[in-house]
Design a protein around this nucleic acid. Structure first.
Lengths: 228, 228
DNA sequence: CAGTGTCCTAATGTTAACATTAAGACAATC
DNA sequence: GATTGTCTTAATGTTAACATTAGGACACTG
């Protein structure tokens, strides 16, 4: 790294990104539940922006998989079916496997430190929603530490859907989710620090499988084959 | 499936998709080489459309990774560095592994038939560009046969970049690429038909490795670790 | 002469008005 | 009575004008 890599790139963003952030947060807080319609005129009125940036913002959310757009039928918040959850589970597994291998191979110690920090933050979270945020943030850090731009983008394409899935299903078993999750992540960190690829891959796999099983209990999603 | 699943959904598309298609083709034909600027006014003038659809079209191409947009700096055709090519190689490997496992597990025989058809089409292609199109089409068919929506979308996010890579590097060794590629794909088809996951995975891996090695000969990209 | 500040220009970002479309209600028809 | 055709309406798709910005040329200053 050169000189001062502490300073953030100070990138200037357009209104579209701002709009996308606001709508995304509104979806996560439940203001727009799954299946709800996102009308351009309504959103532009509330946010005091024109329809142009709103349109672009909705396309951004579409790229993140949070929203589905159809010709002349507008945008609606996605509803995650059992098949969708299985897809998220398997694809996330493939991406995370690659990420873990990259982290074990090439991640710097400072990357692992910041990764450990996100894991430590989970223990100071009592609010379920905050816990989910920390969970996602940890896996974000894993993909960031992998140093693989396109891999991180592929994760970005499903991370919001995973986030939404966790939020909508967390009430199924709050204690089951909140219970062992922080400790599990600590184990993941130590496995990555050891640089033992096989051990880390196995731990990440059981971690994903645990969350998947707990949050799909009672539904028929757990019966689908998962490829690891 | 119900009644006649032969009819295509007959979905109506907006101008933005049309614009994206035209620009994408122009990039592949070399009209806009890597690094070229894509000015909105110029494009809207040539295509006789307003700037709105052009903007959306450029965002579509950005999602496909063919174009990079920056705040108030417009869109430019990407230039693939050695690191970029390695990223594409590794991510494609992870995605294709998952796809192959799905195909072996759940693909219907008709899916495999249409997959074989795309492989057969390669032998009737003498033009290198046509061969590249067939190559991409074959792997499209693999992802389609996997029956995994989000996996196919993840492939869509890099397939155009892979396409561009093949086009820009194919002149490095035309005979090396055109030579064994059709036969290799036939082997891939038979491996999938056998439903032997491990054998198919191995064949796909060596197939990717061959193309990667041939087209990066002379550069320093081949020395990077590839995770399989 | 290096560095800074100011202007200009050509592009993108944004807006509001206009055109087109999809979905539902309802009447007409077989 | 089920189907088809037409109309209405409320939304999105599209356009063109306006506002803002990044980059470069050039003069200014230490």
């Amino acid at each position: 790294m050169s000189e001062q890599s502490m300073v953030s790139p100070a990138r200037r963003r357009g209104l579209a990104d701002e709009v996308a952030d606001r709508i995304r947060e509104a979806i996560f807080t439940g203001a727009y539940p799954p299946g709800a319609q996102l009308r351009e005129v309504e959103l532009s009125g509330v946010m005091d922006v024109s329809r142009g940036p709103v349109r672009e913002g909705l396309r951004i959310l579409e790229r993140e998989g949070l929203v589905r757009c159809a010709w002349h039928r507008g945008a609606t918040v996605i509803t995650l079916s059992a098949a969708d959850v299985t897809e998220l589970h398997t694809l996330r597994g493939a991406l995370e496997d690659l990420a873990v291998r990259h982290v074990v191979d090439r991640a710097s110690d400072s990357d692992l430190d910041s990764l450990a920090k996100t894991a430590a933050a989970m223990e100071r979270a009592d609010d379920p929603h905050e816990m989910v945020r920390c969970d996602i943030a940890f896996h974000d850090a894993v993909f960031a530490a992998a140093g693989h731009q396109r891999l991180a983008e592929a994760w970005d394409a499903i991370r919001c859907q995973v986030h939404l899935f966790l939020l909508t299903r967390i009430n199924v078993s709050v204690e089951g989710y909140l219970g062992g999750i922080p400790r599990e992540h600590q184990e993941l960190v130590t496995a990555l620090r050891t640089r033992d690829a096989d051990a880390a891959l196995a731990l990440f796999a059981v971690h994903r499988h645990n969350a998947f099983d707990i949050l799909t209990a009672g539904t028929d999603e757990a019966s689908a084959p998962t490829h690891r």
